[in-house]
């Protein structure tokens, strides 16, 4: 499969037209010039699009791919209407499938599998909630175990647990070397 069709597959829910928009890039560099991340890192938005156009798979292993904060500034300004930020999300999906997911990101994902929240409650906040006149535990998956079960079902259905490397027996992340 070509890089393009693999990215299209990863980005199916956001649409083929959105993904394919990078084919119209004319390499003007406006995206790089707009990018807050490019100011402080060696990430260059235009280069990513350029490598995608060339079908260069090495882009998947490049840690710079993860320096984008999805701020959408480039997306708004691109004169060729390349849906850059959405494309980056889809390319990252493919990178994740190939195992380029950092330990810290796997940990964030595991909190949702364990609690339904990427940032779960703690004792300090429970106390503060009470002081503020709120319920000690919010009316979310934290309070409704059945809702958490539904989230887990979805996660199993999409194989998100396997993507992340989550072990249901130990309820923690499998050991996996970081690529």
């Amino acid at each position: 499969m070509s890089l393009l069709s693999e990215i299209e597959e990863c980005g199916e829910v956001i649409g083929k037209d959105t993904i394919d928009s990078f084919l119209a890039c004319m390499q003007c560099g406006k995206c790089t010039g707009s990018c807050p991340s490019g100011r402080v890192t060696s990430y260059r938005t235009r280069r990513v699009i350029n490598r995608l156009q060339a079908g260069d798979r090495s882009v998947l292993a490049d840690p710079n791919l993860w320096m984008c904060t999805t701020c959408y500034t480039c997306y708004e300004r691109c004169p060729r209407e390349v849906r850059i930020t959405d494309i980056i999300r889809a390319v990252r999906n493919l990178a994740a499938k190939e195992g380029y997911m950092s330990k810290s990101h796997r940990a964030t994902a595991s909190y949702v599998i364990k609690t339904g929240h990427a940032v779960p409650i703690n004792d300090e906040t429970k106390k503060l909630r009470k002081e503020l006149g709120l319920s000690e535990v919010p009316p979310t998956t934290h309070k409704f175990p059945k809702a958490l079960e539904s989230i887990r079902k979805i996660i199993k259905k999409t194989n998100f647990d396997k993507l992340v490397g989550f072990d249901w027996d130990t309820m923690s992340l499998e050991e996996r070397g970081e690529k």
């Binding site: 904060t69 999805t70 980056i88 889809a90 999906n93 997911m101 964030t108 949702v112 979805i154 999409t158």
Partner: peptide, 12 residues
């Protein structure tokens, strides 16, 4: 989170 989970797996 759109930029986090959206970056891992758009289907999920």
């Amino acid at each position: 989170a759109p930029g986090v989970f959206g970056s891992f797996d758009l289907n999920t």
